[in-house]
Simulated scan of single mutants.
Amino acid sequence: MSSRSPFVDQAVAHLNQVAPVTARFMFGGYGLFVEGVMIALIADDVLYFKVDDQNREDYIEAVSEPFTYYGKGKPIQMSYYRLPSEVFDNLEQLVQWVEASQAAAARSKSKSKRTQKESL
């Protein structure tokens, strides 16, 4: 029996219809991974997808909110936005948003590798 929240299990099962998603417990929530790359997170039973400058506008237009937590006495906004429920419920759209988040995660990973090399 799973000790995860039912929401995590349901979200992973639903997302597996469009991509091979796995969940890993992290920092009180869950990171969702496709092929070893984190494309989404779940915190307090809310699903957030990875964004960057190329897909953030889709979330803003959908009146989505960024994942924000409080650290060192102030809010810290991360590059993940709440996935709109209408996208989650539409598999055709969901495929596109998963792919866009995968691309954003890949760009972010590539960018951090370049930054590490430049600082050496």
Rank of each mutant, 00 (worst) to 15 (best):
K50G: 01
F88W: 07
A100I: 02
S108R: 06
E65R: 11
F67A: 04
G73M: 09
H14V: 08
A13V: 12
L32V: 06
A11H: 03
N90Q: 10
R24I: 12
F27C: 02
I60Q: 13
A100H: 05
V95E: 10
E99S: 14
I76Q: 10
T22G: 11
R82Y: 06
N16E: 12
G28W: 05
D89Q: 14
A100R: 13
Y69I: 12
L41M: 14
G73R: 07
V46N: 03
F25P: 03
I42K: 04
K74F: 05
T68E: 15
L32W: 04
L83W: 04
A19Q: 07
V95H: 10
M78A: 09
V18K: 02
P66S: 12
G73I: 10
P75W: 05
P66Q: 10
E99I: 05
Q102N: 12
K109P: 03
V21L: 03
I60H: 02
V18D: 09
K109A: 15
G71K: 07
A13L: 14
E92K: 13
R56V: 06
L32T: 04
E86I: 10
S101D: 04
A11Y: 05
F67T: 00
G73V: 12
D45R: 07
L15I: 05
V46Y: 00
S79K: 09
F33K: 06
Y48R: 01
E61S: 13
K50H: 15
L83R: 06
Y30H: 14
Y59A: 14
G71Y: 11
K109M: 14
Q96E: 15
N90K: 04
V51C: 05
V37P: 00
D52H: 02
A23R: 03
E65V: 12
S101E: 09
A103Y: 01
K109L: 15
R107G: 01
E99K: 14
R56K: 14
F27Q: 07
R107K: 09
L32D: 11
F27I: 04
F33L: 13
K72A: 13
D58A: 13
Y70F: 14
V37H: 09
M38N: 11
V51F: 01
Y48G: 00
S79M: 06
K109Y: 10
M38H: 01
A106H: 11
P20N: 15
Y30S: 02
D45A: 03
E61L: 14
M38P: 00
F27T: 05
V87W: 10
P20V: 09
E92D: 15
M38L: 04
L94H: 08
S108I: 01
N55A: 10
V18P: 04
K72H: 13
M78T: 13
A43F: 08
G28D: 08
D52G: 07
A11V: 15
V51G: 03
F33T: 07
F88T: 07
P75V: 13
V63Y: 07
L41Q: 11
A40I: 08
Y48M: 02
L47T: 04
I39D: 04
A105V: 01
D53T: 09
E65D: 10
